[in-house]
Amino acid sequence: MNLYTRMIVVLTVVGLISGGCLSVVGLLTRERIELNRQKEIEEAIGKVVPGTKSYSAAVEEKDLTVYKAKGEQDNLIGYAIYARGTGFQDVITLMFGTDPNLDKINSLTILEQKETPGLGAKITDGQAFLQFWENREINQGLTLRKPAVDTKEELAPSEVNTITGATISSQKVLDIINLSLEQVRSLKNRGKLEGEE
């Protein structure tokens, strides 16, 4: 076997063996990885729309997915909205739950963020940030209360609290949610949310 042939044979064999191993590994892990992803979404939906017994994706766009959360009798008990947007440092991914009429936001959970640790990263903290998002009225859009207040009672029904020292991260979260709400409302008005039953 001359050199050229040898080179090609060796490369082909190495390539084939590699491809073979990877296909096996790829197939073995694919299901598990998909499962992990589903679990994460499921948990988030359960958190933001309490009492969800099942859910389905009504709209799936690049940075926005709207899930219909259904209760015991398969009735619509709320929407779980998954949204992605730019934060202070990098992308923020979150999920928030609303009632079926898009009047109120139940609560919010942050899925992915790379904000400044100790400051912007506090957006994942229940005490410091998330608790102020519970049961807010969203008809006129949400506004940020600056400077931050100490207790929930001090906030107007459509206000959310900012994090001292992390106003930009707080604002970014607000922007993502207000933007998604606009998009979801527009989709609803055009009947697009009846997609899956």
């Binding site: 590699s18 296909s23 790829g26």
Partner: peptide
């Protein structure tokens, strides 16, 4: 569906 071949 060959995302696992991305690295290689």
């Amino acid at each position: 569906d060959l995302s696992y071949l991305q690295i290689v």
